[in-house]
Amino acid sequence: MNEWTIAIIKVVFIWSWTLLIATIMTWVERRGSALIQDRLGPNIAGPFGLFQPLADGIKLFTKEEFAPKHAHKILFTLGPVLFAIQAFSAYAVIPFGDKIVINAKEIVLQVADVNIGFLFVLAVGSLAVYGFVVGGWGSNNKYSLLGGLRATAQLLSYEVPLGLAMLAVCMTYGSFSLREISLDQAGTFLGFLPNWGIFKQPLGFLVFIVAAYAEANRVPFDLPEAESELVAGYHTEYGGMRLGLYLFGEYVNLYTLSALMVTIYFGAWHIPYVDMSSYLGPLAYGIVSFLVFFLKCAFFLWLFVWVRWTIPRFRFDQLMGLGWKSLIPLGLLNLFVTAFLIQITV
């Protein structure tokens, strides 16, 4: 197997894996909300309703691709496509395990270990704005336009605290590469705490997780699609697979953000106090590291669902106030404290 084959296999794997997660997430969301709300949720299709996402997918695919008469045809189609592209490409630099050894060949479980991983995630993540605003504008509908504008302002505002929190992590571990940061989180520090980002950057994590929820457009930050105010926000006019792309893209984004959180704050594939590689063979280690990483992601995915069905939505000025008046100062404070601590310890 040459490098290219491996790269293509990894790309195809991660693409189908994230798609699978996104599909299952729709089921988790519906069953999870039902669990929280004393309901049953979808339970007809397959065992526990597990085939429900499949049925939904078939429905979305077989629907007529309908565009309203007054919409701009090209932009109307371009919006969801842009959104889906950014959603699927953001995962490229995030690891999904340590490494696996097959036929004495070491394969790193990450599509691309670029040395500017952070910047790539931020850059691609902010492309989501185009998906929202192009779709909202192309629909030529006032609700859509307002939703698109809300999305733009919200995403741009929350990129800043997200970046600030990530920058502090970079300074702590001295690297922009997500794989190097993951590797650095093995072992313990101060003698008893796992060497995880959350223990080194507690304030940074707080800023990060709030900003991440805002980036994912989830309750309490789902203003771009607030269904009680803007009907459905930027995707009011969408239906069929165009809508499906938006919905899938949203769940893929959730997975990306969860994986990012696990990678930089929760020790990636490491289990605290246990050095797995010394107990397991190289193949088993690769698989276990993948599973550990996924389980951690699953917890954060569930957290997204949990929060969504628990608390109400912000108002737009409150959203902006939280971003600019609380999170950015906190992020800056965190950055200065981190820099100061690095300065006195090095």
Binding site: S33, Q37, V219, P220, A226, S228, P312, R313
Partner: peptide
């Protein structure tokens, strides 16, 4: 009122 403000769950309770 809860649903309109984005809090869905109390509605079901």
């Amino acid at each position: 009122l809860g649903v309109d403000l984005g809090a869905f769950t109390p509605f079901f309770y």
